[in-house]
Protein backbone atom coordinates (compact mmCIF):
# COMPACT_ATOMS: atom_id res chain seq x y z
CA UNK A 1 0.00 0.00 0.00
CA UNK A 2 1.34 3.44 -0.92
CA UNK A 3 1.22 6.59 1.20
CA UNK A 4 -1.98 7.76 -0.47
CA UNK A 5 -3.53 4.41 0.44
CA UNK A 6 -2.63 4.35 4.13
CA UNK A 7 -3.47 8.02 4.66
CA UNK A 8 -6.92 7.34 3.20
CA UNK A 9 -7.45 4.34 5.48
CA UNK A 10 -6.38 6.36 8.54
CA UNK A 11 -8.59 9.34 7.59
CA UNK A 12 -11.73 7.22 7.46
CA UNK A 13 -10.96 4.96 10.44
CA UNK A 14 -13.18 5.13 13.54
CA UNK A 15 -11.02 7.09 16.02
CA UNK A 16 -11.67 4.66 18.88
CA UNK A 17 -10.65 1.71 16.75
CA UNK A 18 -7.40 3.35 15.68
CA UNK A 19 -6.69 4.18 19.33
CA UNK A 20 -7.35 0.57 20.35
CA UNK A 21 -4.93 -0.72 17.71
CA UNK A 22 -2.23 1.80 18.59
CA UNK A 23 -2.72 2.98 22.18
CA UNK A 24 0.82 4.21 22.80
CA UNK A 25 2.47 6.79 20.57
CA UNK A 26 6.22 7.32 20.27
CA UNK A 27 7.60 10.72 21.25
CA UNK A 28 6.76 13.36 18.70
CA UNK A 29 6.56 17.12 18.33
CA UNK A 30 3.97 19.11 16.44
CA UNK A 31 4.87 20.85 13.23
CA UNK A 32 1.23 21.81 13.14
CA UNK A 33 -0.89 21.07 16.19
CA UNK A 34 -4.26 19.44 15.47
CA UNK A 35 -6.58 21.98 13.86
CA UNK A 36 -10.31 21.53 13.27
CA UNK A 37 -11.65 23.05 10.08
CA UNK A 38 -13.88 22.42 7.14
CA UNK A 39 -13.41 21.24 3.59
CA UNK A 40 -15.82 22.29 0.87
CA UNK A 41 -17.06 19.13 -0.83
CA UNK A 42 -17.76 19.53 -4.53
CA UNK A 43 -19.98 17.56 -6.86
CA UNK A 44 -20.48 17.72 -10.61
CA UNK A 45 -23.63 18.76 -12.45
CA UNK A 46 -25.21 15.56 -13.75
CA UNK A 47 -22.42 13.58 -12.12
CA UNK A 48 -20.00 14.42 -14.93
CA UNK A 49 -20.29 18.13 -15.77
CA UNK A 50 -19.35 21.42 -14.15
CA UNK A 51 -18.13 21.36 -10.56
CA UNK A 52 -20.37 22.91 -7.90
CA UNK A 53 -20.12 23.40 -4.16
CA UNK A 54 -22.22 20.79 -2.39
CA UNK A 55 -21.49 21.69 1.23
CA UNK A 56 -18.74 21.38 3.78
CA UNK A 57 -17.53 18.56 6.00
CA UNK A 58 -15.54 18.77 9.20
CA UNK A 59 -11.91 17.78 8.93
CA UNK A 60 -9.03 17.84 11.42
CA UNK A 61 -5.44 18.15 10.26
CA UNK A 62 -2.16 17.68 12.03
CA UNK A 63 1.54 17.41 11.22
CA UNK A 64 4.12 15.80 13.50
CA UNK A 65 7.84 15.06 13.59
CA UNK A 66 9.16 11.98 15.33
CA UNK A 67 12.25 12.30 17.55
CA UNK A 68 14.43 10.65 14.94
CA UNK A 69 13.24 12.91 12.13
CA UNK A 70 10.43 11.53 9.99
CA UNK A 71 7.48 13.87 9.38
CA UNK A 72 3.88 12.70 9.22
CA UNK A 73 0.74 14.46 8.03
CA UNK A 74 -2.93 13.74 8.55
CA UNK A 75 -6.24 15.09 7.28
CA UNK A 76 -8.99 13.09 8.95
CA UNK A 77 -12.77 13.30 8.85
CA UNK A 78 -14.48 14.78 11.89
CA UNK A 79 -13.33 16.83 14.87
CA UNK A 80 -11.25 14.37 16.85
CA UNK A 81 -7.83 15.89 17.56
CA UNK A 82 -6.33 12.69 18.97
CA UNK A 83 -7.46 10.90 15.80
CA UNK A 84 -5.57 13.45 13.69
CA UNK A 85 -2.48 13.25 15.89
CA UNK A 86 -2.46 9.45 15.89
CA UNK A 87 -2.96 9.32 12.11
CA UNK A 88 -0.07 11.75 11.59
CA UNK A 89 2.18 9.68 13.86
CA UNK A 90 1.29 6.51 11.95
CA UNK A 91 2.01 8.33 8.68
CA UNK A 92 5.45 9.24 10.04
CA UNK A 93 6.10 5.71 11.36
CA UNK A 94 5.14 4.26 7.99
CA UNK A 95 8.27 5.97 6.63
CA UNK A 96 10.53 4.18 9.14
CA UNK A 97 11.63 0.60 9.83
CA UNK A 98 8.41 0.15 11.79
CA UNK A 99 6.39 0.28 8.56
CA UNK A 100 5.87 -3.48 8.06
CA UNK A 101 4.66 -3.93 11.65
CA UNK A 102 2.26 -0.96 11.44
CA UNK A 103 1.07 -2.05 8.04
CA UNK A 104 0.07 -5.47 9.34
CA UNK A 105 -1.09 -4.49 12.85
CA UNK A 106 -2.91 -1.25 12.08
CA UNK A 107 -3.41 -0.25 8.45
CA UNK A 108 -4.32 -3.66 7.05
CA UNK A 109 -6.65 -4.33 10.00
CA UNK A 110 -8.46 -1.02 9.53
CA UNK A 111 -8.72 -1.51 5.77
CA UNK A 112 -10.12 -5.01 6.25
CA UNK A 113 -12.68 -3.81 8.78
CA UNK A 114 -13.79 -0.98 6.48
CA UNK A 115 -14.02 -3.46 3.61
CA UNK A 116 -16.10 -5.87 5.71
CA UNK A 117 -18.53 -3.10 6.65
CA UNK A 118 -18.84 -2.08 3.04
CA UNK A 119 -19.35 -5.66 1.95
CA UNK A 120 -21.99 -6.21 4.63
CA UNK A 121 -24.04 -3.27 3.32
CA UNK A 122 -23.54 -4.42 -0.28
CA UNK A 123 -24.93 -7.84 0.65
CA UNK A 124 -27.97 -6.31 2.31
CA UNK A 125 -28.49 -4.11 -0.76
CA UNK A 126 -28.17 -7.13 -3.04
CA UNK A 127 -30.95 -8.85 -1.09
CA UNK A 128 -33.27 -5.95 -2.03
CA UNK A 129 -32.57 -6.24 -5.76
CA UNK A 130 -35.78 -6.66 -7.75
CA UNK A 131 -36.14 -9.72 -9.96
CA UNK A 132 -38.69 -8.68 -12.54
CA UNK A 133 -40.72 -11.23 -14.37
CA UNK A 134 -43.20 -10.36 -17.08
CA UNK A 135 -46.67 -11.81 -16.82
CA UNK A 136 -47.67 -13.88 -19.84
CA UNK A 137 -50.07 -11.82 -21.88
CA UNK A 138 -53.08 -13.36 -23.63
CA UNK A 139 -52.13 -12.30 -27.16
CA UNK A 140 -48.75 -14.08 -26.88
CA UNK A 141 -50.34 -17.50 -26.60
Amino acid sequence: MDRKGWMSVLAKAPPARLAALLPDLPNHSYLRPPEIGSVMVQGRVGGTGAAFNLGEMTVTRCSVRLEDGPVGHAYVQGRDKTHATRAAVVDALMQTDAAPRLQSDVVTVLAAEAGALRHDRAEKAAATKVDFFTMVRGEDQ
Partner: peptide
Amino acid sequence: LPRLGTSVPVDTAQMAVD
Protein backbone atom coordinates in the same frame (compact mmCIF):
# COMPACT_ATOMS: atom_id res chain seq x y z
CA LEU B 1 -14.36 26.83 11.11
CA PRO B 2 -11.30 27.71 9.07
CA ARG B 3 -11.63 26.43 5.51
CA LEU B 4 -8.82 23.89 5.07
CA GLY B 5 -9.47 23.34 1.38
CA THR B 6 -11.79 22.18 -1.35
CA SER B 7 -12.31 18.57 -2.32
CA VAL B 8 -11.86 17.02 -5.70
CA PRO B 9 -15.44 16.80 -7.10
CA VAL B 10 -16.92 13.54 -5.78
CA ASP B 11 -17.38 10.76 -8.31
CA THR B 12 -20.92 9.49 -7.81
CA ALA B 13 -20.36 6.74 -10.40
CA GLN B 14 -18.08 5.14 -7.78
CA MET B 15 -20.76 5.29 -5.09
CA ALA B 16 -21.21 2.23 -2.84
CA VAL B 17 -24.96 2.12 -3.32
CA ASP B 18 -27.51 1.16 -0.67
